[in-house]
Design a protein around this nucleic acid. Structure first.
Length: 199
DNA sequence: CCCTGATTCGC
DNA sequence: GCGAATCAGG
């Protein structure tokens, strides 16, 4: 297929609406998102970000191709190192995060007085928001059974495995993680107070 | 691994 | 001009 006026028009329209290239491509049909992106660039409407950033300052960068767009210094960044908490997806031990009132003691913070003291950058415990989020989304949970889980469904167990009131979240997982966004939030604590229960 | 846009370059 | 392949980021 080719870029007829109509198709270009639709492209412009959708792009302007903030649709993703893949969505546009799907709508148009017969083209890939790459084609769309390529066209977008050729049309010169790359920057969707409203105001801006088109300084027009163009450095003539055409050093005969052989230049080095490749130079990629990779400063090894230190990994935060998170530690998986709780749930063993096997029907055995549930996190019971929500069966619990989840009353986060949230340690008292002594504020030096004077400074606004913005949100702690070094959050340790599970943030209250995260818990709230979990309680939120669990209402929308797919409530899948063990067999229904796939590689892209949140495997966070909910409820008591001993009862029939037990299911897995089942919402779309976050990237590589085994859990959805909300559950990732509570599952991966920044190597914190892992109070190991004496058992 | 899923997605996003950006860029390159043979066609 | 076109867009697959690739790159780079989330």
């Amino acid at each position: 297929m080719s870029w007829t006026d109509e198709r270009v028009e639709l492209l412009k329209k959708m792009w302007g609406e903030g649709q993703s290239a893949s969505q546009i491509a799907k709508e148009l049909g017969g083209v890939t998102r790459n084609a769309v992106i390529g066209k977008v660039h050729r049309l010169g409407l790359s920057n969707r970000t409203t105001g801006a950033a088109k300084p027009a300052a163009e450095a003539k960068e055409k050093p005969a191709t052989k230049a080095a767009p490749k130079a990629a210094p990779k400063p090894a960044a230190a990994q935060p190192k998170t530690e998986p908490a709780r749930p063993a997806a096997t029907a055995e031990a549930a996190p019971a995060a929500e069966t619990r009132p989840a009353t986060m003691p949230a340690r008292k913070q002594i504020i030096p007085a004077g400074q606004p003291l913005p949100p702690q950058p070094s959050a340790n415990e599970i943030s209250p928001e995260a818990l709230a989020k979990v309680n939120e989304i669990e209402k929308k949970a797919k409530k899948l059974t063990l067999m229904e889980l796939t590689e892209r469904t949140c495997k966070w167990p909910v409820g008591d495995p001993a009862t029939d009131d037990f299911w897995f979240c089942g919402l779309p997982v976050q990237q590589g993680k085994p859990y959805c966004e909300a559950h990732v939030g509570v599952a991966f604590q920044p190597m914190s107070a892992r109070r190991d229960r004496k058992r």
